[in-house]
Write a protein that binds this DNA or RNA. Structure first.
Length: 404
DNA sequence: TCTGGGGTCCTAGGACCC
DNA sequence: TCTGGGGTCCTAGGACCC
């Protein structure tokens, strides 16, 4: 259940806590010989870089060979995701013991609302300082915290305070802090938008605040323009929300340059289907919209999606539809090669609250062309789960048709 | 010598329903 | 028989974030 918590918006009550160079810090914590040295976590590409490495210009995501050229002494260690998950859980326990109002943003950052805790825990700045000490002492990791009246500003503050910093933007001092910053600090300004703004002579947040919103709409479209105008004026009414749930679960796999055979591609996709559906079942969720993601040899991308008539977390129907989509794109894959394939399942529902008769698989009459395709695949490959062995499609063999 | 893996949100056209 | 406006869902793509 999602809930909103309103705090007194005139006060700087919102904390944004963000672990510094998270993966790299865990590695430096667990291997003392890495302390104080330039470390990158990755394999082929940099997933995280320590501050010592960042000083050389190493950043993420950067090809490993490039990082090593920038920083010849760089130590590259392979990722240990289990260790990161464990460290993250420990840190989130500290978040939750700080305040009940915690909104996770990713594995290494969260918003905390500490409004209303003054009497119990003191001023936000003191709460933030204590939290930083606990994370350092109990988990052994550096964390930066920003404190402000809005989520957006708290996030900017934590970023500005890095590394291992604490920064409070006092109520009333928001615009003085915000306006000199470059537009790229705004949430939602990436390389493309930054370039478009730069071309119009817009460099700082203050420049945006001065701009007529209509002008911005013409430049970026209505949604983005309103969003940026609001942030530049520090209008950010979003509250810290607990209980937010993911809207999709997916997995993808980069394939490199090697050309895979159709059977190998089928097997790769089935492995991804298996991983995704397992995760869905573990999370006790079902979904109905399948999106297959392709990146071709020239690095152009494309997605194909289909919506099932009933939500499911079962391997078999999802595998059947995902394979049908893959086979439908075969001509383009043959022409260009394929460098990435992925699958995500959206429209997620709680399995417990989904009426049983809505769940696949179950005995039923086909209700859509898509279901007919699923049934067709079942007939063709047997009613058991679609297995790798049953799907060794040689090139040229008839492949399942995807209904238009 | 290229470019990982997990997500979110927005836009826009077309289908479909009322 | 012709015509409308609004709402929602589906699909594809783009941009962005960590």
């Amino acid at each position: 259940m999602r809930s909103r918590v309103r705090s007194n918006s005139a006060e700087a009550n919102i904390l944004h806590a963000d672990l510094d160079s998270f993966y790299a810090s865990v590695e430096q914590r667990d291997d003392p010989t890495l302390k104080g040295r330039p470390v990158a976590v990755g394999g082929g590409i940099v997933l995280a870089a320590s501050y010592e490495a960042k000083a050389f210009g190493v950043s993420t995501p950067m090809a490993e060979w490039r990082a090593k050229r920038l920083c010849p002494d760089l130590i590259v260690v392979p990722p240990r995701f289990d260790a990161y998950v464990a460290a993250s859980s420990a840190v989130f326990e500290l978040f939750h013991s700080t305040t009940p109002v915690v909104e996770p943003m990713s594995i290494d950052e969260a918003f905390l609302d500490v409004g209303g805790l003054r009497r119990v825990s003191g001023q936000p700045v003191d709460i933030a300082a204590r939290l930083r000490r606990s994370v350092r002492n109990d988990v052994g990791l550096p964390i930066s915290v920003g404190v402000a009246t809005t989520k957006f500003l708290a996030k900017v503050a934590s970023a500005v305070s890095k590394p291992d910093g604490l920064l409070v933007v006092p109520a009333g001092g928001e615009l003085a802090f915000l306006h000199p910053l470059p537009v790229s600090r705004l949430w939602g300004v990436g390389p493309k938008t930054n370039e478009r703004l730069r071309a119009r002579g817009i460099f700082t947040v203050g420049d945006i605040a001065l701009l007529d919103e209509q002008h911005l709409v013409a430049l970026l479209g209505k949604g983005a323009a309103r969003h940026l105008s609001a942030l530049a004026a520090n209008r950010d009414p979003r509250s810290v929300e607990t209980g937010r749930r993911r809207g999709s679960i997916g997995s993808q796999h980069a394939l490199g340059r090697a050309r895979l055979s159709p059977a190998e591609l089928d097997a790769t996709l089935l492995g991804i289907v298996d991983r995704v559906t397992r995760r869905m079942r573990t999370a006790n969720r079902v979904g109905s919209t399948l999106t297959v993601r392709f990146r071709f040899g020239d690095f152009t991308r494309s997605t194909r999606s289909r919506t099932l008539s009933h939500p499911t977390a079962a391997t078999e129907p999802i595998a059947a539809v995902a394979l049908a989509i893959l086979h439908h794109e075969w001509a383009r894959i043959e022409d260009n090669g394929l460098t990435l394939i992925g699958l995500s399942v959206g429209n997620l529902l709680d399995a417990d609250h989904t009426p049983e008769q809505m769940l696949l698989p179950f005995g039923r009459k086909p209700t859509s062309a898509l279901d007919e395709a699923v049934d067709d695949l079942r007939k063709r490959f047997g009613n058991q789960a679609v297995t790798r062995a049953s799907l060794v499609n040689q090139k040229g063999q008839e492949t399942p048709k995807l209904p238009d």
